[in-house]
Design a protein around this nucleic acid. Structure first.
Lengths: 203, 203
DNA sequence: TTCTGGATAGAGCGTTCGTTCTAGAGGAGA
DNA sequence: TCTCCTCTAGAACGAACGCTCTATCCAGAA
């Protein structure tokens, strides 16, 4: 009631189909597949059933601001997948196998087009656009932290857990990339087994 | 002397500065940094000190053909680095540590812009352009084969060597990506140590 | 010398890019 | 009813895109 604006969608309700959300989702999906430069604002607005005016209304910072939001959306998506697997499978080593298999299946089911939700978006642009580099770095750190906590909870020493979490994320990332490019689940399946084996060494 | 044409540059000498080579090198370097869609043909021709006419003379297939040549160039570049390290360091496990450190140093020395020579080029385009996906897949397979041979020579069984080579390439790839995005050598250094540890398990 | 074909040179094509701008629709509060 | 403000709508701009095209250069063959 003061002059300060209310939360933007307080009255209109932040429904899942609300325009801003549709735009972010479309941007995230398209950039995941085609990269930052390969995806146009107009394509995003069409895919989101929104107009150019709406896009620039919600993202006055233009394509760069939209890309950062898309990365954060992809981040959150994988955080939920990660939380689900780590929360379901008790043994951290076993969890790596389950995780890699699920990633492989998701990749195959999308006909090898939906890889890591943030790598493609950020790779070509990170060198030119600092905000995108920062957002991508924060994402990796977040994923690593989740794995690290799981390893600690599994009885692994802090320093070992820290390093293993680094390698777990790196290896899964690289294996997903290799799997996508070679259109085969094998790199991810092998990576899962090796990560499990590596983790059991530190228990 | 027959009607069959001689090798194109037989007389003109395939000097390192020859136009076609300069174009491929510029394309490879630029696409490595900016991706397929982020790199323009005109930018490549300027960087190579060539003209648009020359580019389309040597690459009538246009940007796609040029991108494939750029990937093969990047492939060859890393093959030489790989051959050098694997040929110098006798122990395969130790070789992984040396390799990852050299990759980390190269990345840092380029101020974190020169990552994997083919990932950025191929990621956004592989889904749309089959030739690029195929070239990237062949590249990964080639790198893996070199590592696999080294592991075999180090006394590791065929099946184990096959799988370890997969994980070695995946992990190095992912760690380079993480290192680039977080502007830190740590992911690569940790990856090298873990790969070495993993390899010694199979000896 | 004349001829030939690889290589260089760059103007210009149609298209798409990211962005800006003005206009209007729709709902809440006075 | 009138006002205000968020959000929708899309035409239009200059720049850059990939690519085509014609013209020219020049070394070696005839």
């Amino acid at each position: 009631m003061t002059t300060k604006a209310k939360a933007k969608t307080e009255t209109a309700a932040g429904a899942p189909g609300d325009t801003r959300t549709r735009i972010v989702r479309a941007a995230s999906r398209l950039m995941q597949r085609q990269g930052y430069d390969g995806t146009g604002i107009k394509q995003i607005s069409q895919e989101a059933s929104a107009t150019l005016g709406s896009v620039y209304h919600f993202f006055p910072g233009g394509k760069q601001e939209l890309a950062v939001a898309a990365i954060q959306h992809g981040d959150q998506e994988f955080v939920e997948e990660l939380r689900h697997v780590l929360g379901t499978v008790e043994d951290p080593a076993e969890a790596m196998i389950v995780l890699s298999r699920r990633m492989a299946e998701g990749l195959r089911d999308s006909d090898w087009i939906d890889g890591c939700p943030i790598t493609t978006t950020s790779l070509g642009a990170a060198g030119r656009i600092p905000d995108i580099q920062t957002a991508a770095a924060r994402t990796f750190a977040r994923w690593r932290d989740l794995v690290q906590d799981k390893l600690r909870a599994g009885g692994i020493a802090q320093e070992d857990a820290y390093e293993l979490a680094h390698t777990a994320i790196s290896t899964l990332e690289g294996a997903e990339l290799a799997a996508q490019v070679s259109r085969s689940m094998e790199p991810l399946e092998i990576a899962g087994r090796h990560l499990a084996r590596l983790i059991t060494l530190y228990k």
